[in-house]
Structure formats: structure tokens, C-alpha cells
Write a protein that binds this DNA or RNA. Structure first.
Lengths: 231, 231
DNA sequence: TTGAAAAGGTGACAAATATCATATATATTT
DNA sequence: AAATATATATGATATTTGTCACCTTTTCAA
């Protein structure tokens, strides 16, 4: 086993709460963790499932979503390299309220909950770090609530593209690095797929977006921003 | 100063994270806290304000809301006896993302952040308890997101009444103990005040709700529940 | 490599919801 | 108690968004 497969040496952890663990604790985590490769479209865990640990994203992006009674999926969060999924359920000792599906090919580590819970009760720095990140997630969730209930679908789609650009960046030709299907975008925004397609088409016609194959790119960020703000 | 004004003796704390504090820590909190009486409609803190501590609700209910760019308020959470407001901002060291306004006359304790942050870094049990409650809030926020984006206004209003009943109860005559204005209900649900009024009128005509003065009561809980579920 | 399946696209229409205007009831202040 | 402000109510109408039907393009597996 190469040394890069040890949590102690993993750069990913610099981006999440694991960085607050001691060498000792990390060693324990590393000894109990398992690595997983997940193909695009595959499920990592399902809503209602009891999680016996957390998942640390090493590569790729996962959508965390919840199925509503009418059969539609609402994407609540996208989890990226460095983020940990499933802590909420492990901490609250509840089944997961969300399901996680890979948006593209992923690599992740599974860390059994014992290693986490142990440290949570012993290392206040670690617990505080987890708390800090959860406080951040909660703020973002509040923002999503306000956006969904107060902005139009057009505004929210405009925002979604700005979010994709600022969080995942664009390639040399100006196309967004993270490509989501129209359906996924609709599920992030909370609208019907057809409405989403229609608005994206409109944005293309108006010169706000460009496309090439499956890729989409932002052409006029300022106008998109104005639109998102309601002008 | 009566002994009931000491945090060590306060029953309220049994309902929140403060119960995980040691006698010693509670003493420190108690010595630094101040009590406040807030009249219905008064603000406790504003969006964007830097909070120098947290507020523990001893009596009454507060609405935590966020102003959107179109001038409407979205109520994200109602905080009740035993709940602590403002921890998110104190923990993340950010200005508040929400403002808090008293829904009825309130009594609360202000605890300066030093007392909290100190304990957060020293007492893992306390930190874990705060974390557990925040995990719970986050789950609720996820549920709100799904509800707002997937359910109709009618369904959400039905849900709001069921929530008010199960969380605040009803009096001997079957009227909800917590009375919210139609505007507040609209802001919880994320709709226009007029739409909210219209639907409440409809519910009354259909025999699902009754009213007397400002008070509203649930007449047919089962039908209300079916409606909320989409039948 | 060729079909089937999935994703993207568009029109027509229906349904849900917001907005504006205005009226009435209720609460609050003087 | 009158005057004023605020909350509730309702109609008419506009706007937004969803739904259904159908078509084209792309993707992927046999």
C-alpha cells in the first residue's frame, strides 16, 4: 500500500474537518477506512439508509438529493473533493435524510463511524471543526430556502450557472468544468425539466450562455448576475 | 437575585445544549449573562449584525427570517422556549444571516460569546451537543427546501397548521396556542399574503379550520394531513 | 453499426400563483 | 369615541410555471 493511501498523507483532508485530528487519531481512521470507486450515476447511499460511517470525497462530485412524494428529486447539495458526506446522519444517529448519487466518476473513502464518533467525544478541536462546517452548510441551506421561495425559476437558473462557475471553474475555452444534465439542473433549482431546458435555450439565444456538445459555458457573466438579482 | 435566575438552576437549559456544561462552566455563563425582556414585534437582532453572543429563549417565540431582494421576508425557523439563537453566527464567526423578531412577548438570556466559545474548545460533550442540535436543524432545513420546491402552496399551508398544532399545541377550545398573522404564515410558507388568506378562507369554508377573533383552530386534522400529503 | 434508450428540445395548453385594486373588519392611538 | 392604522378579505387579471404530446439528437450497449 503506497503512503499516499494513508489518511495522514492525504491532501484531501486539508479541506475538511479531518485536518483537526491528531496523528494518532488519523492513524486509527486510516487503518479502518476503505476506498471505493463509484461510477457516474451509481448510488453511494440511499435516503432512509442507516449509515455506518461517513464518505470522504477524493475525486468527483456527488449530488445529495431527496425524493419528494410526487416522485421528483430535489438536489439539496453538491459534494465535491474534500467534503465529507453522511456526518449529519452519523452525528444525529438517524437514518440518512438524503441519498447520494455520483454525478461523474468518483473516488471516495469510507470511514466507519466508530473512528469518527470516538474522536468527536475526545477531541474538541475536531468536534468544533465539524461544527464549523455544519454551521456553514446550515447557512447555505437557509440561503437556498430564501432563493427558492422568493426568486423566479429564471433567476435561480442564472444563479445556478454562476454557482457552477465559481465553485468548479471553467476550462480554457470557457466551458463549465462540471457538466450537469438539464434534469439535474432542474432538480437543483426545483423546477420541471422542460422549464429548465426552455430557459437555458432562451439564455443561449440571448447570448448569455454558449454550448458545445454537452458542455455549457457562460458568455455574459454580468448580465447573468443582473438577471439573478432581478434586474 | 433569586436562585432561579442562575443558569445552574434554570430548567430551560434542560432543553438545549447548555445541559452538557459542567457546574463550573454554567457558573461562568451565569455570571456573564444578562436577561432581556422583548415586546411582541420588537427585533432581537438584525440580518448582517455581528453577534457578540447567543440568546437563550426562556419565554415566547421568535421568528428567524431573511429579507430577500424583492422586499419579502422569508421565515426560516421559529425559535421557542429552550432554543438558542445565534449560535451559528458565533460559531462560524460571521455576521448573522438571519434577523430575529419576537412573535409574542419574550423573555431571554443573552450569553456573551466568550463563555460559549471557551467551553466549545474545552468541553467535547458540550460541543457535541451543539453539533447534534445543529445537525437536527440542518435536516429540518433540508426538509423545508424539498417542501417548498415540491409542494403546492395549499399543501404547505396545511402542513404549517399541523406543525403549529404539534409544536405549540392547542387550548381547551381547540384553538392553536401560537397565533401567527396571515402575513407571518405566508412568510413561513413562502407565498403572497393574499394567497395565504385565500387558502385559509377556503380551509374554513371546507370545515378544516375554525376561527374566533385572531385565533385559528384545526377542525379536521385527518383531512388536513391528507391534503398536505397530496391527496 | 445499428437499434434502443436516454437526453434535449419545442409547441399548445392548463393550472397555480402573484399582483393590483378595493372593501371591510379589527386593533390602536389620541 | 373618533380617527387612524393595520389586518383580513375578495374579485379581476396577469404572469409564471407545469404538464402533455411529440419530435430530434445523442449516447450506449448488444
Amino acid at each position: 500500500m503506497g503512503s499516499e493511501s494513508r489518511c495522514e498523507n492525504c491532501i484531501i483532508r486539508q479541506f475538511n474537518s479531518l485536518r483537526a485530528m491528531s496523528k494518532e487519531e488519523l492513524k486509527q481512521v486510516s487503518d479502518s477506512k476503505t476506498s471505493k470507486v463509484i461510477k457516474k450515476g451509481e448510488a453511494i447511499f440511499e435516503e432512509g439508509e442507516k449509515l455506518n460511517g461517513v464518505f470522504c470525497v477524493r475525486e468527483g462530485v456527488s449530488k445529495l438529493s431527496k425524493l419528494s412524494s410526487n416522485g421528483k428529486d430535489q438536489i439539496v447539495k453538491l459534494a465535491t473533493k474534500g467534503e465529507v458526506m453522511g456526518q449529519r446522519s452519523v452525528i444525529a444517529e438517524e437514518t440518512s435524510n438524503l441519498s447520494a448519487v455520483a454525478v461523474n466518476d468518483m473516488e471516495l473513502c469510507f470511514i466507519p463511524k466508530e473512528a469518527i464518533v470516538n474522536t468527536l467525544h475526545k477531541n474538541p478541536d475536531f468536534t468544533f471543526e465539524v461544527l464549523r462546517l455544519m454551521a456553514h452548510d446550515l447557512r447555505e441551506a437557509d440561503d437556498v430556502i430564501v432563493n427558492i421561495s422568493q426568486k423566479t425559476v429564471k433567476q435561480r437558473i442564472a444563479e445556478a450557472f454562476l454557482y457552477l462557475k465559481s465553485n468548479y471553474g471553467e476550462d480554457e475555452q470557457g466551458f463549465l468544468i462540471l457538466t450537469l444534465s438539464r434534469e439535474d439542473i432542474a432538480n437543483v433549482v426545483g423546477t420541471a425539466t422542460e422549464s429548465c431546458i426552455r430557459i437555458i435555450s432562451e439564455f443561449k439565444k440571448k447570448g448569455l450562455l454558449k454550448s458545445s456538445g454537452k458542455k455549457l459555458g457562460i458568455l455574459d457573466e454580468k448580465k447573468l448576475r443582473d438577471l439573478a438579482e432581478g434586474f
